[in-house]
Design a protein around this nucleic acid. Structure first.
Lengths: 151, 151
DNA sequence: AGCAGTTATATTGTGTGCAATATAATTTGA
DNA sequence: TCAAATTATATTGCACACAATATAACTGCT
Protein backbone atom coordinates (compact mmCIF):
# COMPACT_ATOMS: atom_id res chain seq x y z
CA UNK A 1 0.00 0.00 0.00
CA UNK A 2 1.37 3.34 -1.06
CA UNK A 3 1.58 6.44 1.14
CA UNK A 4 -1.15 8.21 -0.84
CA UNK A 5 -3.61 5.53 0.04
CA UNK A 6 -3.56 6.54 3.69
CA UNK A 7 -5.97 9.34 2.75
CA UNK A 8 -8.46 6.64 1.79
CA UNK A 9 -8.50 5.05 5.22
CA UNK A 10 -11.96 5.27 6.77
CA UNK A 11 -10.64 6.70 10.03
CA UNK A 12 -8.97 9.55 8.16
CA UNK A 13 -12.22 10.81 6.66
CA UNK A 14 -13.92 13.88 8.06
CA UNK A 15 -17.17 13.22 6.26
CA UNK A 16 -17.72 9.70 7.56
CA UNK A 17 -18.11 10.50 11.28
CA UNK A 18 -20.55 13.25 10.32
CA UNK A 19 -22.52 10.79 8.23
CA UNK A 20 -22.46 8.17 10.97
CA UNK A 21 -23.34 10.67 13.71
CA UNK A 22 -26.26 11.97 11.69
CA UNK A 23 -27.60 8.43 11.16
CA UNK A 24 -27.04 7.44 14.80
CA UNK A 25 -28.76 10.61 16.01
CA UNK A 26 -31.69 9.85 13.76
CA UNK A 27 -31.96 6.38 15.25
CA UNK A 28 -31.92 7.83 18.78
CA UNK A 29 -34.59 10.40 17.94
CA UNK A 30 -36.86 7.97 16.14
CA UNK A 31 -38.59 6.27 19.09
CA UNK A 32 -38.89 9.56 20.99
CA UNK A 33 -40.36 11.44 18.05
CA UNK A 34 -42.59 8.52 17.08
CA UNK A 35 -44.58 9.24 20.22
CA UNK A 36 -45.28 12.68 18.76
CA UNK A 37 -46.09 11.21 15.37
CA UNK A 38 -43.08 12.89 13.78
CA UNK A 39 -40.03 11.78 11.85
CA UNK A 40 -36.78 13.63 12.41
CA UNK A 41 -36.99 15.86 9.29
CA UNK A 42 -40.62 16.60 10.17
CA UNK A 43 -39.50 17.60 13.67
CA UNK A 44 -37.02 20.04 12.10
CA UNK A 45 -39.82 21.54 10.00
CA UNK A 46 -41.92 22.01 13.12
CA UNK A 47 -38.99 23.71 14.89
CA UNK A 48 -38.76 26.16 11.98
CA UNK A 49 -42.51 26.79 11.92
CA UNK A 50 -42.83 27.12 15.68
CA UNK A 51 -40.37 30.00 15.44
CA UNK A 52 -42.36 31.69 12.70
CA UNK A 53 -45.40 30.84 10.62
CA UNK A 54 -46.51 30.92 7.95
CA UNK A 55 -43.39 30.60 5.85
CA UNK A 56 -42.93 29.70 2.21
CA UNK A 57 -41.65 26.25 1.25
CA UNK A 58 -38.49 27.90 -0.02
CA UNK A 59 -37.89 29.74 3.26
CA UNK A 60 -38.21 26.52 5.25
CA UNK A 61 -35.90 24.79 2.79
CA UNK A 62 -33.29 27.53 3.02
CA UNK A 63 -33.28 27.18 6.77
CA UNK A 64 -32.90 23.38 6.67
CA UNK A 65 -30.77 23.19 3.50
CA UNK A 66 -33.43 21.10 1.78
CA UNK A 67 -35.17 21.63 -1.55
CA UNK A 68 -38.75 21.23 -2.75
CA UNK A 69 -38.11 17.69 -3.96
CA UNK A 70 -37.68 16.68 -0.35
CA UNK A 71 -40.03 19.13 1.31
CA UNK A 72 -43.12 18.89 -0.89
CA UNK A 73 -43.96 15.23 -0.16
CA UNK A 74 -42.87 15.65 3.47
CA UNK A 75 -45.16 18.66 3.95
CA UNK A 76 -48.04 16.83 2.28
CA UNK A 77 -47.67 14.02 4.81
CA UNK A 78 -47.62 16.57 7.62
CA UNK A 79 -50.71 18.22 6.13
CA UNK A 80 -52.48 14.84 6.03
CA UNK A 81 -51.49 14.36 9.67
CA UNK A 82 -53.20 17.67 10.50
CA UNK A 83 -50.07 19.45 11.71
CA UNK A 84 -49.59 22.07 9.00
CA UNK A 85 -51.55 23.90 6.33
CA UNK A 86 -50.44 24.55 2.75
CA UNK A 87 -51.94 27.33 0.68
CA UNK A 88 -50.87 29.42 -2.26
CA UNK A 89 -49.67 32.89 -1.39
CA UNK A 90 -52.39 35.26 -2.64
CA UNK A 91 -49.84 37.97 -3.43
CA UNK A 92 -47.49 35.63 -5.33
CA UNK A 93 -49.19 32.50 -6.58
CA UNK A 94 -45.89 30.76 -7.28
CA UNK A 95 -45.34 30.40 -3.57
CA UNK A 96 -46.96 28.03 -1.10
CA UNK A 97 -47.24 29.24 2.46
CA UNK A 98 -46.89 26.63 5.15
CA UNK A 99 -48.74 27.35 8.38
CA UNK A 100 -49.24 25.52 11.65
CA UNK A 101 -52.62 24.14 12.69
CA UNK A 102 -53.94 24.29 16.26
CA UNK A 103 -52.88 20.67 16.58
CA UNK A 104 -49.40 21.60 15.36
CA UNK A 105 -49.17 24.39 17.92
CA UNK A 106 -50.36 22.05 20.65
CA UNK A 107 -47.66 19.57 19.73
CA UNK A 108 -45.04 22.06 20.86
CA UNK A 109 -45.92 21.40 24.49
CA UNK A 110 -45.33 17.69 24.03
CA UNK A 111 -42.08 18.40 22.19
CA UNK A 112 -40.60 20.58 24.89
CA UNK A 113 -39.15 17.55 26.70
CA UNK A 114 -37.46 16.11 23.57
CA UNK A 115 -34.12 17.97 23.66
CA UNK A 116 -33.52 17.20 27.32
CA UNK A 117 -34.61 13.59 26.97
CA UNK A 118 -32.05 12.98 24.26
CA UNK A 119 -29.23 15.04 25.71
CA UNK A 120 -29.50 13.31 29.06
CA UNK A 121 -29.02 9.92 27.44
CA UNK A 122 -25.66 10.87 25.99
CA UNK A 123 -23.66 11.58 29.12
CA UNK A 124 -22.09 14.69 27.63
CA UNK A 125 -21.84 17.91 29.60
CA UNK A 126 -23.70 21.03 28.54
CA UNK A 127 -20.34 22.62 27.72
CA UNK A 128 -19.30 19.70 25.52
CA UNK A 129 -22.60 19.81 23.68
CA UNK A 130 -22.33 23.55 23.24
CA UNK A 131 -18.77 23.32 21.87
CA UNK A 132 -19.77 20.53 19.53
CA UNK A 133 -22.75 22.49 18.26
CA UNK A 134 -20.66 25.60 17.60
CA UNK A 135 -17.99 23.55 15.81
CA UNK A 136 -20.40 21.81 13.49
CA UNK A 137 -22.46 24.96 12.94
CA UNK A 138 -19.28 26.58 11.69
CA UNK A 139 -18.70 23.66 9.34
CA UNK A 140 -22.22 23.97 7.99
CA UNK A 141 -21.46 27.60 7.20
CA UNK A 142 -18.32 26.56 5.33
CA UNK A 143 -20.13 23.80 3.43
CA UNK A 144 -23.07 26.04 2.53
CA UNK A 145 -20.62 28.63 1.20
CA UNK A 146 -18.79 26.00 -0.84
CA UNK A 147 -22.12 24.83 -2.23
CA UNK A 148 -23.14 28.37 -3.19
CA UNK A 149 -19.82 28.96 -4.95
CA UNK A 150 -20.30 25.95 -7.21
CA UNK A 151 -23.69 27.01 -8.49
CA UNK B 1 -42.95 32.06 24.37
CA UNK B 2 -41.90 30.43 27.61
CA UNK B 3 -38.32 29.92 28.73
CA UNK B 4 -38.54 26.18 28.13
CA UNK B 5 -39.25 26.75 24.50
CA UNK B 6 -35.78 28.12 23.92
CA UNK B 7 -34.56 24.54 23.80
CA UNK B 8 -36.72 24.09 20.73
CA UNK B 9 -34.98 26.81 18.75
CA UNK B 10 -33.31 25.39 15.66
CA UNK B 11 -30.01 27.08 16.41
CA UNK B 12 -29.90 25.45 19.83
CA UNK B 13 -29.99 21.91 18.43
CA UNK B 14 -26.83 19.81 18.28
CA UNK B 15 -28.34 17.26 15.96
CA UNK B 16 -29.41 19.67 13.24
CA UNK B 17 -25.96 20.93 12.17
CA UNK B 18 -24.80 17.31 12.03
CA UNK B 19 -27.77 16.46 9.84
CA UNK B 20 -27.22 19.48 7.61
CA UNK B 21 -23.45 18.93 7.38
CA UNK B 22 -23.98 15.31 6.42
CA UNK B 23 -26.42 16.28 3.67
CA UNK B 24 -24.22 19.13 2.42
CA UNK B 25 -21.15 16.88 2.38
CA UNK B 26 -23.10 14.33 0.38
CA UNK B 27 -24.02 17.01 -2.13
CA UNK B 28 -20.38 18.07 -2.47
CA UNK B 29 -19.21 14.48 -2.94
CA UNK B 30 -21.89 13.55 -5.44
CA UNK B 31 -20.44 15.07 -8.64
CA UNK B 32 -16.91 13.96 -7.73
CA UNK B 33 -17.94 10.39 -6.94
CA UNK B 34 -20.27 10.23 -9.94
CA UNK B 35 -17.15 10.25 -12.12
CA UNK B 36 -16.13 7.03 -10.37
CA UNK B 37 -19.63 5.60 -10.73
CA UNK B 38 -20.16 5.61 -6.96
CA UNK B 39 -22.65 7.10 -4.54
CA UNK B 40 -21.38 8.29 -1.18
CA UNK B 41 -22.43 5.21 0.83
CA UNK B 42 -20.96 3.02 -1.90
CA UNK B 43 -17.71 4.97 -1.60
CA UNK B 44 -17.67 4.24 2.12
CA UNK B 45 -18.14 0.53 1.41
CA UNK B 46 -15.19 0.64 -0.98
CA UNK B 47 -13.05 2.37 1.66
CA UNK B 48 -13.84 -0.46 4.07
CA UNK B 49 -13.16 -3.17 1.50
CA UNK B 50 -9.95 -1.55 0.20
CA UNK B 51 -8.62 -1.86 3.74
CA UNK B 52 -9.52 -5.53 3.95
CA UNK B 53 -11.41 -8.00 1.77
CA UNK B 54 -13.34 -10.15 1.79
CA UNK B 55 -15.50 -9.16 4.75
CA UNK B 56 -18.96 -10.30 5.77
CA UNK B 57 -21.93 -8.00 5.27
CA UNK B 58 -22.21 -7.72 9.03
CA UNK B 59 -18.56 -6.68 9.42
CA UNK B 60 -18.96 -3.93 6.84
CA UNK B 61 -22.17 -2.83 8.51
CA UNK B 62 -20.56 -2.70 11.94
CA UNK B 63 -17.83 -0.49 10.56
CA UNK B 64 -20.28 1.90 8.88
CA UNK B 65 -23.09 1.65 11.47
CA UNK B 66 -25.46 0.32 8.80
CA UNK B 67 -27.59 -2.84 8.80
CA UNK B 68 -28.43 -5.43 6.16
CA UNK B 69 -31.61 -3.63 5.17
CA UNK B 70 -29.44 -0.83 3.82
CA UNK B 71 -26.41 -2.82 2.72
CA UNK B 72 -28.00 -5.73 0.87
CA UNK B 73 -29.57 -3.71 -1.96
CA UNK B 74 -26.58 -1.36 -2.04
CA UNK B 75 -24.14 -4.27 -2.39
CA UNK B 76 -26.28 -5.84 -5.09
CA UNK B 77 -26.07 -2.64 -7.10
CA UNK B 78 -22.30 -2.61 -6.60
CA UNK B 79 -22.16 -6.24 -7.69
CA UNK B 80 -24.14 -5.40 -10.83
CA UNK B 81 -21.66 -2.59 -11.47
CA UNK B 82 -18.83 -5.12 -11.32
CA UNK B 83 -17.10 -3.59 -8.30
CA UNK B 84 -17.65 -6.28 -5.66
CA UNK B 85 -18.44 -9.97 -5.38
CA UNK B 86 -20.96 -11.60 -3.03
CA UNK B 87 -20.75 -15.24 -2.06
CA UNK B 88 -21.86 -17.38 0.84
CA UNK B 89 -19.19 -18.21 3.36
CA UNK B 90 -18.48 -21.94 2.92
CA UNK B 91 -17.67 -22.37 6.61
CA UNK B 92 -20.83 -20.57 7.80
CA UNK B 93 -23.55 -20.46 5.20
CA UNK B 94 -25.49 -17.80 7.08
CA UNK B 95 -22.85 -15.26 6.12
CA UNK B 96 -22.20 -13.55 2.80
CA UNK B 97 -18.63 -12.53 2.07
CA UNK B 98 -18.14 -9.35 0.10
CA UNK B 99 -14.98 -9.21 -1.99
CA UNK B 100 -13.49 -6.68 -4.40
CA UNK B 101 -13.19 -7.39 -8.11
CA UNK B 102 -10.17 -6.38 -10.20
CA UNK B 103 -12.25 -3.44 -11.39
CA UNK B 104 -12.97 -2.53 -7.79
CA UNK B 105 -9.26 -2.65 -6.93
CA UNK B 106 -8.43 -0.55 -9.98
CA UNK B 107 -10.94 2.07 -8.88
CA UNK B 108 -8.77 2.81 -5.86
CA UNK B 109 -6.25 4.59 -8.06
CA UNK B 110 -8.93 6.88 -9.43
CA UNK B 111 -10.25 7.47 -5.92
CA UNK B 112 -6.93 8.55 -4.44
CA UNK B 113 -7.51 12.14 -5.49
CA UNK B 114 -11.00 12.37 -3.95
CA UNK B 115 -10.13 13.36 -0.35
CA UNK B 116 -7.77 16.13 -1.46
CA UNK B 117 -10.16 17.40 -4.11
CA UNK B 118 -12.91 17.86 -1.57
CA UNK B 119 -10.78 19.14 1.28
CA UNK B 120 -9.19 21.79 -0.92
CA UNK B 121 -12.59 23.18 -1.82
CA UNK B 122 -13.48 23.93 1.78
CA UNK B 123 -10.75 26.37 2.72
CA UNK B 124 -10.19 24.75 6.10
CA UNK B 125 -6.70 24.08 7.39
CA UNK B 126 -5.43 20.55 7.93
CA UNK B 127 -5.43 21.23 11.66
CA UNK B 128 -9.04 22.41 11.62
CA UNK B 129 -10.10 19.33 9.68
CA UNK B 130 -8.18 17.08 12.02
CA UNK B 131 -9.74 18.66 15.11
CA UNK B 132 -13.19 18.45 13.60
CA UNK B 133 -12.69 14.81 12.70
CA UNK B 134 -11.51 13.92 16.20
CA UNK B 135 -14.41 15.79 17.79
CA UNK B 136 -17.07 14.09 15.69
CA UNK B 137 -15.39 10.69 15.94
CA UNK B 138 -15.69 11.03 19.70
CA UNK B 139 -19.38 11.85 19.35
CA UNK B 140 -19.90 8.78 17.17
CA UNK B 141 -18.39 6.70 19.94
CA UNK B 142 -20.78 8.23 22.46
CA UNK B 143 -23.80 7.74 20.18
CA UNK B 144 -22.85 4.15 19.34
CA UNK B 145 -22.55 3.42 23.05
CA UNK B 146 -25.93 5.01 23.74
CA UNK B 147 -27.44 2.94 20.94
CA UNK B 148 -25.93 -0.27 22.32
CA UNK B 149 -27.28 0.48 25.80
CA UNK B 150 -30.84 0.78 24.56
CA UNK B 151 -30.86 -2.59 22.85
C1' DA C 1 -49.16 45.21 -23.88
C1' DG C 2 -46.66 41.24 -24.47
C1' DC C 3 -42.75 38.28 -24.76
C1' DA C 4 -38.29 36.57 -22.85
C1' DG C 5 -36.12 35.38 -18.81
C1' DT C 6 -36.50 34.28 -14.11
C1' DT C 7 -38.53 32.31 -9.95
C1' DA C 8 -41.15 28.96 -6.90
C1' DT C 9 -42.98 24.75 -6.39
C1' DA C 10 -44.23 20.05 -8.11
C1' DT C 11 -43.12 15.68 -10.35
C1' DT C 12 -40.26 11.72 -11.59
C1' DG C 13 -36.85 8.35 -10.92
C1' DT C 14 -32.99 6.51 -8.35
C1' DG C 15 -30.64 5.41 -4.12
C1' DT C 16 -30.39 5.21 0.43
C1' DG C 17 -31.83 4.30 5.82
C1' DC C 18 -34.35 1.67 8.88
C1' DA C 19 -37.99 -0.99 11.54
C1' DA C 20 -40.36 -5.18 11.24
C1' DT C 21 -40.48 -9.48 9.56
C1' DA C 22 -38.97 -13.75 7.17
C1' DT C 23 -35.75 -17.39 6.16
C1' DA C 24 -32.04 -20.30 6.62
C1' DA C 25 -27.99 -21.90 9.20
C1' DT C 26 -25.60 -22.61 13.46
C1' DT C 27 -25.28 -23.31 18.35
C1' DT C 28 -26.88 -24.72 22.81
C1' DG C 29 -28.70 -27.56 26.15
C1' DA C 30 -31.68 -31.18 28.09
C1' DT D 1 -29.36 -36.12 19.26
C1' DC D 2 -32.48 -33.04 18.30
C1' DA D 3 -35.50 -29.24 19.39
C1' DA D 4 -35.21 -24.45 21.05
C1' DA D 5 -32.73 -20.36 20.95
C1' DT D 6 -29.60 -17.59 18.52
C1' DT D 7 -27.33 -15.59 14.52
C1' DA D 8 -26.73 -13.62 9.71
C1' DT D 9 -28.70 -12.04 5.86
C1' DA D 10 -32.77 -10.98 2.90
C1' DT D 11 -37.31 -8.91 2.13
C1' DT D 12 -40.96 -5.50 2.63
C1' DG D 13 -42.83 -1.12 3.32
C1' DC D 14 -42.26 3.60 4.33
C1' DA D 15 -39.86 8.05 4.48
C1' DC D 16 -36.44 10.71 3.14
C1' DA D 17 -32.67 13.26 -0.21
C1' DC D 18 -31.67 14.89 -4.53
C1' DA D 19 -30.80 15.63 -9.63
C1' DA D 20 -33.37 16.52 -13.60
C1' DT D 21 -37.30 18.08 -15.47
C1' DA D 22 -41.95 20.21 -15.80
C1' DT D 23 -45.29 23.74 -14.89
C1' DA D 24 -47.14 27.85 -13.55
C1' DA D 25 -46.50 32.63 -12.15
C1' DC D 26 -44.05 36.82 -11.92
C1' DT D 27 -40.71 40.61 -13.73
C1' DG D 28 -38.28 43.38 -16.97
C1' DC D 29 -37.70 45.20 -21.13
C1' DT D 30 -39.00 47.15 -25.24
Amino acid sequence: MREDDDFLRLDRQVCFPLYAASNLFGRLYRPVLAELGLTYPQYLVMLVLWEQAPQSVGAVGERLHLDSGTLTPLLKRMESAGLVTRQRDATDERRVLVGVTAQGVALRDAARAVPQTLASGLGLSAAELSDLRATVQHLVGVLATAEAEVS
